[in-house]
Computed example of a mutant assay.
Amino acid sequence: MKRILPLLLTLVMAQPLGAHPHVFIDTGLTLAFGPEGRLQRVKVIWIYDAFYSLLITQDMDLDQDGDGLLNPDEKAQLTGFDMQWVEGFNGDLVITQEGQELALSGPQDVTATFVEGQIVTTHWRDVTQDTAGSGTYEVTPYDASYYTAYEVTLPVEILGADQCRSRIAMPDITADLDALRQELFALDRQAQPEDAGLPNIGAKFADKVVVTCASS
């Protein structure tokens, strides 16, 4: 991700973790189709790992009483903390339709909560290029640098399209891919994977949601 405060970067780098990834996010998706069968919006749910959630809440001085609950002001402060995207950032989400990447809006209808020590955020994104309304979609949440590891462990819902079915395609960890992962983990903390000849490395380890829609 490209939204982390400098203080958090320092804290994470001080931990005894492998070089990559640093942040772990359980992910869920809702795909909303319109009346003509075209994909119109996608809702993204992120549940941050407990350690990263702790760093965020400490840095923002939230939950100072340690009861695991946020008051309304704290919740308002937390909402949108991860939505300050730099220009050109794709939101760590790629959607293709029959192999053609679809354009997505920025985040909308943002929410944030704090549940059992973990930050949970949601946002919606408009899909602006779906013209077919049928065929196969691939929805892939991933960080190209693999700083953040996304795993689709939460439900995938489809709204407004009974003709569509989804399945999760997990990466096939072959011997070659496992060797690549060990090479990645051996990198110096300050090194960027692309500088070590490993561009777009996150895509190789990404869960992919495959949605197949029959013609109406």
Rank of each mutant, 00 (worst) to 15 (best):
G160A: 13
E157M: 10
P155T: 01
L78Y: 04
P171Y: 11
L159G: 09
Q84G: 14
D92P: 07
V120H: 13
Q129W: 06
T113I: 02
Y147I: 02
Y146P: 08
E151D: 14
V139F: 04
S134A: 14
I173G: 05
G106R: 00
I119E: 01
P107D: 00
E138D: 13
P171W: 13
D176I: 03
T122A: 03
A175T: 15
V139S: 02
I119W: 01
Q97V: 09
Q118R: 15
L93W: 00
G88T: 04
S105R: 04
G91P: 00
D126G: 11
Q163D: 14
T136A: 00
P171L: 07
D176F: 08
Q84E: 15
R167S: 10
L104I: 06
V156R: 07
Y150D: 07
E116A: 15
K75F: 07
T113Y: 01
R125W: 00
R165L: 06
V139H: 07
Y150Q: 08
G135F: 07
V139D: 03
T121N: 12
F114S: 06
D162F: 01
E116V: 11
V110D: 05
A103I: 09
T153F: 09
T96I: 01
I168Q: 08
D162C: 03
T121Q: 13
Y146H: 07
I158F: 06
R167I: 11
T174Q: 07
A112C: 02
D176K: 09
F81K: 04
Y146Q: 08
Y146F: 07
T136L: 03
A76F: 06
Q118K: 14
G99I: 04
Q108T: 09
V94L: 09
F81C: 05
A112S: 10
T79G: 02
G80Q: 05
V94N: 04
P107A: 02
P155H: 03
Y142A: 10
T140C: 10
A76N: 10
D172R: 12
R165Q: 10
